[in-house]
Design a protein around this nucleic acid. Sequence first.
DNA 1: AACATCACG
DNA 2: ACGTACGTGATGTTA
Length: 881
Amino acid sequence: MSHFVLIDGNSIANRAFYALPLLSTSAGLHTNAVLGFTTMLLKVLEEMKPTHIMVAFDAGKVVFRHSEYADYKGGRAKTPPELSEQFPLIRELLDAFSIKRFELEGYEADDIIGTLTKTADEQDWKTTVITGDKDMLQLVSEHVSVALTRKGVSEIELYTPQEIQEKYGLKPLQIIDLKGLMGDTSDNIPGVPGVGEKTALKLLHEYGSVEEVLENIDRVSGKKLQENLRENVDKAKMSKELATILREAPVELDVQETGYTSYDGVTLSEFFKRMEFKSLLSKIKVEAPDDGQAANAAPFQYEVISAENAEKYADKLTSPMAVYVEMDGDNYHHSPIVGFGLSADDVNLFVPWDVAKEWKAFSQWLADGSQEKWTFDGKRDTVGLAWHELDIKGINFDVYLASYLLNATESNPTLDSIASQYAQVRVRSDEEVYGKGAKRLLPEMDVLSEHAAHKAAAIWQSVPVLREQLTENQMNELLNDLEAPLSMVLALMEKQGIKVNRDRLTQMGVELDAKLEELTKQIYELAGTTFNINSPKQLGEILFDVLDLPVLKKTKTGPSTSADVLEKLAPYHPIIDAILIFRQLGKLRSTYIEGLTKEIHSQSSKVHTLYNQATTATGRLSSTEPNLQNIPIRMEEGRKIREAFIPSEEGWYMLAADYSQIELRILAHISGDENLIDAFRNGMDIHTRTAMDVFGVSEEQVTSLMRRQAKAVNFGIVYGISDYGLSQNLNITRKEAGDFIERYFSVFAGVKQWMEDIVKQAKQDGFVTTLLHRRRYLPDIRSSNFNLRSFAERTAMNTPIQGTAADVIKLAMIRMQEALQEKGLKSRMLLQVHDELVFEVPQDELETMKKLVPEVMESALELQVPLKADVNFGHSWYDAK
DNA sequence: AACATCACG
DNA sequence: ACGTACGTGATGTTA
């Protein structure tokens, strides 16, 4: 039996656009309407199994209705550019699905569909119309159902004549009369003033049609209603005409041409990849339909190595080869190793861990630097294997880093997403294989071995595609000379770890406990009751209900109790200061005493952080488990935590070196601002210099307040300044903040020019870059939404600065590790904190390192201004100040 | 799992 | 007129 499905393209696209958040691809192409349309199509194809299907679109400006009523659709806001740009994509989508689409100059989709349903009706076909427009209900008949989308496009509600009868008590054609009486604001159909759905239905139940109602106005109950009807006879008639869908449009389409069997999975998945619809990729059948031998019809084959057959496979270990080290767990400092997936042109292997340990040819191949390996996160492999006394050398391409560089906005690329973008083989996500949260467990070995082999194959297939795209983006050097060598430096640092004095932490914990207990008592007394001080909700009730303090700021869920608010409330009540100290000490206890202690490794008695090299949008590193990049320093009480970070060898020292004002120096370089360059070349205190220029005073006249304000302005500049942000930071009015900025820009005109230029360039390209070609896409920079756009503009100003600073210190780290090796030094690099490097140093290398470290850091990259690094040392990280 | 808060550069 | 500073991660509470 035939089933003909007709889709109202414009209606569905609009619905999808407004129902879904404004998604976009990494290149800035908006895709939410396309995604919604796709979801709907997949659902329709699966659930309705159409034998014939087509999508109709509006076309041309002058719809025939316009000549009858000038204001038709006048009330409709014009289509936003974010939606218009998606219509060509939706057309491509339909082509990829092999679904016939149709439009007719001067007619709307409704009319095309109306005409075709009539034909279908006559031919006795089962027909379904998909739309978001209730007007279309008038097309419903014995053969024709209308499916209205609900909640965007995710659900549909099917209408047959029975449903319309039940819901409205009307025949389908009476829907036209309904619209004629009540009108439709979205189409600017006027209807009769004062008549809404309720009244219109009542009238129609009584009289049946607009014409009958108008003939019987005198009998209608209600004076006002009678009057409205009498005065709007013409309007009602015209409205009915406007609401009537034309069923005689000159549609020259043979419905037989809309026949549908299935889509071509390969074409469609290409399109999905381009749209970055990762979750949808897994939902479609990738094999080409019916022709029996699709492109990847060959089933995936892999072999499992055993102790018995291992030697037979020794010559399969080639160069290059893709390697994936399957581990059970996310933290590779602790994870057991399950085995190795290996892949090359015509071979996929899995080597279980117990086989690998004993297989000499394998461990030799693995440790042989001349045997090139392609990996996913070589740092993870290197450190994870090092914990089991296994060496991996010769890592020559890392798809994890490559994919991050190509799109830094999607942080932490996973192999299944990389595979779906760059390879043919399908890789299941780890979550899918292992289960998540409490349900996580180690699957059967055959599942694991296939999973690991899939991953290796995905790496193997992705490399050529990634290489091509890196070349296109001029990122080969960034990968080969920066990120890849850095990952091996980071591997050393992570595996080395940093010694933490557990007893020192415990002792600090005991002291904190006593203080917190005392504070808790005080706070309960001041509040007159006990409550959970850690609960913003309960605290809010005490402060703002019981004590009746003023609410200065609100969060989504209630009045804000954040530190900046509490500081302003301090004069009102003594409880505030106690709470601020409680918060401060509580943070130290939970995060830095208890949290850090938990991370001390049982084997090494050190903490081994994980540096994430593919997380941040700017190119910085991040650090987890534990995060060693946010150890307290600003407040003395917290700073003491650093006393627990000590050298791992007797008689050694901690040495720390940090860049001075690296971001402003980079701004001076890339903006070319003469004044800023001059300031740095003369070795001036930059905040004092800014204060002199902005306030127009001499160096001696700069007060500490002026310097503090100038410093805040400098920060603001780096962040992509706004008067509001600065005013919040300095607690001044917006106007005053605006004046500061204006004066700053008149003195540093080059900076102003650069900021304008970079935003302009970002709008043109859709991305910004750092000095070393690191790239960040800014899809929102052309948004019509003020907030999104402003945010993207600030990001456009900040990312080249923050990102170039990240480039510079990464270079310095590589040089530093090389220098240590070349000079045969025993000193070890342990930590990176964005603009700071921390080392442990034997006493007899102290003098060498005090010179060497700043030298290397300062010469990492030559700029128009000098780079400066300060160095300090002591018996703990605390003392290296 | 989301939110608020706070530690760092 | 619109409402926010840029980039992170860990913790405790609450829904």
